[in-house]
Structure formats: structure tokens, C-alpha cells
């Protein structure tokens, strides 16, 4: 299939970027990234600068392959990362517009690659369990209600890709943060630090310059892992109860 690509090219973080148009011949069975690989092979053969894009696992679990394809993070298919998006979902002769994730907290580094370390710093602020939980437990030694385990597992499916932020009209990171907070707060090992965690992660989120949640739900619509905004309500509850209810003053 023949495709016309309009790709955002930007040399460096503060350089002025612009769209460049390319023609590429792709196979419908290729993934979107493989199609870009073909383009880059051709650019290299012509001694031109290849298009910089991020990727790692190429199996939909690492969350690295960020880009906005025809106006949607990770493209038009619901519940799909860019690496899992196949060219058969596009028409022969179609023009595809490819841009980097945009948000003040995601500065463009080069072409389609953006700096998402703001999300790492939110995780560093509290997205972990630091209390000693002992050695690996017997499977049923710690009772967890089945529904609770399912909610936690659903939240744990977040791969930290940032599509929620790229899609949100406010560039809010609430879906991402809420998934992390909910995942841990629902389980006994995570409960111990739940109050401190909600405070620390929201504080870091605010410091990084993400927007606030207007409950638009664009995030859930574009999340490749189908993380639900129910988690945002849970984060709001966790935050309210820790800000107003915890005895730690500061």
C-alpha cells in the first residue's frame, strides 16, 4: 500500500519544528512502527536524517511508542499502542499525520520523541511500596477480596505511556496517577503508605505542570489499556481522606 506521511520534524528541544511530507510503500501486515522503519531505511539510504521515534518492547507492554497519529495518541484503534497498530487499518493512498505527544510537561526532544521524565518523577515521589512485606507469600496467605483484586489488577495494567495526558484538553495526568494510586491502595501491602503516597504523588504531579482534571474522559477513551476514570474518583477519595483526615500536618 502507498501512503503519504506528514511527520513533525524538529532538530532539538528549542528548535522550530515543521511538518515534512514523505511517500512510503508499506505492507498491510506491518505494524505502524515497522512502516516507520521502512521509511527510515529509505531516508538513511538517501543519507537523510531518519525520523526519531521511541520504541522498546514492540508488544504493547512498555508504553514507550508515543506519537499522535491522525489526531489520536497511538492512532485510531481503541485499546492499542502504536507498536500494536497494524497498517491494514489504513487505506491505500491515505495521508497520515504524525505528531509528537504535546503537553507543557512533555517537551519535544527530537522529532516524535518527547521527554516524559515528569511521569518518572511522579512515580519516584510515591509510586512504590517501601515497607518490608517479607518474602514471597503463599498464594492465599493474604486474603484479598476478588472484586478488590480485580480493580487493583485493572489499574495495574497502566503502562505509563502518557496517552491520557496527550489526549486531555488540560494535559492532566490524573488518569495515570490515579491508576498508580488505586493499584497500590487497594492491596494490603500498599495500604500502609496509601495516605502519604496520595499526597506525595499529587504534589509532584502539580509541580510538574500538568493540568487539572475537568472530568472530560478523553483520557479513558484514548488509554491503550482501558484504564477507567473510576480510578480518578478513587484518587480524589484517597487524596481528600489523606489531606483532611490524616494526622500528619505538613
Amino acid at each position: 500500500m502507498k501512503l503519504t506521511l506528514k511527520i513533525w520534524r524538529q532538530k532539538a528541544p528549542n528548535a522550530k519544528g515543521r511538518f515534512e511530507t514523505y511517500q512510503v510503500e508499506a505492507n498491510p501486515h506491518m505494524s505502524f512502527l515497522e512502516m516507520l522503519d521502512v521509511l527510515n531505511e529509505e531516508l538513511i539510504a538517501k543519507k537523510e536524517e531518519p525520523v526519531v521515534f521511541e520504541h522498546d518492547c514492540r508488544e504493547g507492554i512498555c508504553g514507550t511508542c508515543s506519537m499522535v497519529i491522525n489526531g489520536e495518541p497511538h492512532g485510531p484503534m481503541a485499546g492499542t499502542t502504536t507498536c500494536q497498530l497494524h497498517m491494514r487499518h489504513f487505506r491505500d493512498g491515505e495521508t497520515i499525520v504524525i505528531e509528537p505527544f504535546r503537553a507543557s510537561a512533555f517537551p519535544v526532544m527530537k522529532d516524535l520523541a518527547v521527554d516524559r521524565s515528569s511521569m518518572d518523577r511522579i512515580i519516584q515521589a510515591g509510586g512504590y511500596i517501601s515497607v518490608n512485606t517479607g518474602a514471597a507469600q503463599d498464594a492465599n496467605a493474604i486474603p484479598v477480596d476478588k472484586d478488590t483484586a480485580a480493580h487493583s489488577f485493572d489499574a495495574a495494567a497502566c503502562i505509563g505511556c502518557g496517552a491520557c495526558i496527550a489526549a486531555c484538553p488540560n494535559a492532566s495526568a490524573m488518569l495515570f496517577v490515579s491508576a498508580k494510586v488505586a493499584h497500590l491502595a487497594l492491596l494490603p501491602q500498599g495500604k500502609v503508605e496509601a495516605k502519604r503516597r496520595a499526597q506525595a504523588m499529587v504534589k509532584q504531579m502539580d509541580l510538574e505542570g500538568f493540568g487539572m482534571c475537568s472530568n472530560i474522559t478523553a483520557c479513558e477513551a484514548e488509554c491503550p489499556k482501558g484504564i477507567s476514570v473510576e480510578n480518578i474518583a478513587r484518587l480524589n477519595r484517597e487524596y481528600l481522606s489523606s489531606a483532611l483526615g490524616s494526622e500528619t500536618v505538613a
Binding site: 489526531g71 504535546r102 503537553a103 507543557s104 488540560n170 494535559a171 493540568g211 472530560i216 474522559t217 476514570v229
Partner: peptide
């Protein structure tokens, strides 16, 4: 927070 550089194409899907 959204930034000054807008998307050239943006689909406004919501859940």
C-alpha cells in the same frame, strides 16, 4: 499545561 504548540489534527473522543 496544554502548551502553546497545538496539535495539527486532533480527534476529540471521550469515554
Amino acid at each position: 499545561a496544554r502548551g502553546s504548540q497545538k496539535y495539527a489534527v486532533k480527534v476529540n473522543k471521550v469515554a
